Simulated scan of single mutants.
Amino acid sequence: MADGWLDTGDLGRRDEDGFLYLTGRAKDLIIRGGHNIDPRLVEDALLSHPAVTGAQAVGQPDRRAGEVPVAYVTLSDATVGEGDLLAWAARHVSERAAAPKAVRVLDALPLTAVGKPYRLPLRADATRRVLAEVLAGLDGVEELTAEAASGTVTVTVTLRDRAAAAEVERRVGDFAVPCRIVTRQGTDG
């Protein structure tokens, strides 16, 4: 508590009559090059598409911008493609920096036990995808996993032996992502 205020992590606004409106959570913000992006900008734009039945946006690690927005959606029309949704979002997201770099279609979006959107597994998926691209073709990488726990995504890279460890550290080090490197002999770093 500071100066009589309790910091809950909630974001909101106050109207001219003094009413408060909760609009989101600070931990859900996507931070792109120092610019804070509210995931609802992306989600609302995608939800305006007639085939989109659900949308959640998260930050995907990016070596230059820190994070870039990506979105996960559910659809009522399976003929709508990810490219169509990217184009839709580019036209309908009010901030150019908030337009998603990828839109991925899922059968269902993750929810908490009380039915609220649960973005952490999506952040883990986005992290795993981008690091899988970064490590693609690197000899010795056997497995890459991204696990979400306690609000943090941690990556584990399993190597056949230590030979590729330095290169994995260099490539993953470009991203602000906690990473464990494991070989068949055990944890190395």
Rank of each mutant, 00 (worst) to 15 (best):
residue 144 L to I: 11
residue 167 E to Y: 04
residue 186 G to Y: 06
residue 93 V to P: 14
residue 168 V to Y: 00
residue 166 A to T: 00
residue 180 R to Q: 01
residue 34 G to T: 01
residue 55 A to G: 07
residue 165 A to Y: 01
residue 172 V to N: 06
residue 94 S to A: 03
residue 139 D to A: 02
residue 19 F to V: 01
residue 144 L to D: 06
residue 32 R to N: 14
residue 121 P to M: 03
residue 187 T to V: 03
residue 35 H to Y: 08
residue 75 L to G: 02
residue 5 W to K: 14
residue 148 A to E: 05
residue 118 Y to P: 15
residue 150 S to V: 10
residue 34 G to Y: 05
residue 185 Q to P: 03
residue 135 L to T: 12
residue 18 G to C: 11
residue 68 V to I: 13
residue 130 V to N: 06
residue 34 G to V: 05
residue 72 Y to N: 08
residue 127 T to W: 05
residue 179 C to A: 12
residue 11 L to S: 03
residue 30 I to V: 10
residue 12 G to V: 12
residue 2 A to N: 15
residue 28 D to I: 06
residue 40 R to W: 13
residue 16 E to C: 09
residue 176 A to E: 02
residue 105 V to P: 09
residue 58 V to F: 08
residue 100 P to T: 09
residue 176 A to F: 12
residue 188 D to C: 03
residue 152 T to H: 04
residue 30 I to F: 04
residue 20 L to T: 03
residue 40 R to E: 11
residue 94 S to R: 00
residue 146 A to H: 06
residue 7 D to K: 14
residue 174 D to V: 12
residue 173 G to W: 02
residue 15 D to H: 08
residue 123 R to K: 06
residue 170 R to E: 11
residue 139 D to R: 03
residue 9 G to Y: 11
residue 27 K to N: 14
residue 156 T to L: 00
residue 119 R to M: 12
residue 189 G to A: 04
residue 134 V to C: 15
residue 102 A to N: 04
residue 153 V to G: 01
residue 77 D to Y: 02
residue 84 D to V: 08
residue 53 T to W: 04
residue 85 L to R: 08
residue 80 V to H: 08
residue 4 G to E: 07
residue 155 V to P: 15
residue 62 D to C: 15
residue 127 T to K: 13
residue 40 R to N: 08
residue 49 H to W: 13
residue 42 V to G: 08
residue 41 L to P: 07
residue 166 A to P: 02
residue 9 G to C: 12
residue 39 P to C: 13
residue 32 R to C: 15
residue 75 L to V: 01
residue 5 W to P: 13
residue 23 T to G: 10
residue 136 A to I: 11
residue 123 R to T: 07
residue 184 R to N: 01
residue 27 K to A: 15
residue 32 R to W: 06
residue 147 E to W: 14
residue 58 V to A: 15
residue 139 D to E: 09
residue 11 L to G: 00
residue 13 R to T: 01
residue 148 A to I: 05
residue 96 R to H: 02
